[in-house]
Computed example of a mutant assay.
Amino acid sequence: MAIHTLYPAERGNLRLSFEYFPPKSDDMEAQLFDTVAALSVFDPAFVTVTYGAGGSTKARSLTAVQRMINDEGFANTAAHLTCVGATKAEVDAVVDEFINKGVRHFVVLRGDPQGGIGARYEPFPGGYENAAALVAAIRAKGDFEISVSAYPEKHPESPDVAADIDTLKRKVDNGATRALTQFFFDNNDFERYLERVRRAGINIPVVPGIMPINNLAGITKFAGLCGAKVPEAIVTRLIHLDESPEERVKEATHIAAEQIVDLARRGLRDFHLYTMNRSPLVAAVCDLVGFERMAPAAAQSRSAGAAA
């Protein structure tokens, strides 16, 4: 098994960010903010809150973002936005609503086709045609942080990686300041992609998206829809552990930690973790890598300062 813990001197200025999704019920809301509290001890540089296609989670996203900023102390909470299922005026109104809630960081995505992943994408009548156009509209409103998506294994709708990188460059030319990648499991794929991105003259941070594997069957199906792959070596390590949940979690922790450590040793300093609104596996990964936990008093002061 690979070395999966960084030495103190290697940890340097590593930074974490976490993705959450808005809750659909009171019970899910409690779980979300229990997770936020549990992971806040790792002092993330920012957190993001997703947004359903066509504004399907608009109210819940707004509420979650507002609570993140005002109650949980995450001033740099990023609100996701998509172009799907809304006119430009409707999207602009949502942007303004987020800004009025204190948002200064957006994650701008085109969004999945209204017919679902795999369906043909068609811009909404009178809407923004793609993420690059929405980036330009938000940039025109002010000096915001704007993160966008990137795909180390190519977006499933792109004809090739070169086209994918051209799309990323248009977003950067229109004002994007950071790219957050789709999850991947082969660091060589990411390194090859990053080399091509840099050769294309794209110099913004490209932050690897890390997905700890809570459920092998679920992540394999999701990866297939997203154009990502789960290497056979990872499948082999997990597939026989379905009936041994403690061992499965331990092995999944090692897999994600090994990926982060290897990327850090290749020079990456920022990591974006997809939490699925669950803290145990993500926290175990962060601990195994060697990310420092804030003292309880410091973590509590973040929320107290927000509430003041």
Rank of each mutant, 00 (worst) to 15 (best):
V230F: 00
G209W: 00
T167P: 01
A223G: 07
R199E: 13
D242L: 15
D186N: 11
A228G: 13
I255G: 01
E246A: 09
V172N: 00
N214Y: 14
R178T: 06
I204C: 09
K154R: 15
E157A: 13
L238H: 06
F184H: 01
R170C: 06
F190V: 00
A256D: 04
P152G: 10
N203H: 12
T253I: 14
H155Y: 08
L238W: 11
P231A: 02
V207K: 00
I239E: 13
F190Y: 13
I255R: 02
N215L: 12
D166C: 10
K169D: 12
S244Q: 15
E247P: 06
E153V: 03
D166S: 14
Y151E: 01
E153M: 12
G218W: 07
L194N: 07
V172D: 03
P152Y: 04
A256M: 10
A228P: 05
L241P: 03
R192S: 14
F222E: 15
A163N: 09
V230N: 04
A200F: 09
V249A: 07
E243H: 10
A163H: 13
A217E: 15
V207D: 01
T220A: 15
I210E: 00
K250R: 09
L168G: 01
I234R: 10
L180K: 02
G227E: 02
R199Q: 10
R170Q: 12
S149H: 12
E247I: 12
P245W: 09
R198Y: 04
D166M: 13
N214L: 09
I202S: 09
A163P: 04
V206T: 03
G218L: 09
L180W: 02
R199W: 03
T220E: 07
I146H: 01
D189F: 11
N174Q: 14
I234M: 09
R170G: 08
V206F: 01
A228K: 03
G218M: 14
G201L: 07
V230T: 10
R178D: 01
V207W: 01
D242G: 10
E232H: 08
A223C: 12
K221M: 05
V230C: 08
T220C: 08
A257E: 10
R196Q: 15
G224E: 07
N215F: 05
T167G: 05
N187Q: 05
V235G: 02
T177Y: 04
L180M: 10
R196V: 12
A257W: 04
F144W: 03
I213P: 05
P208A: 11
Q182H: 10
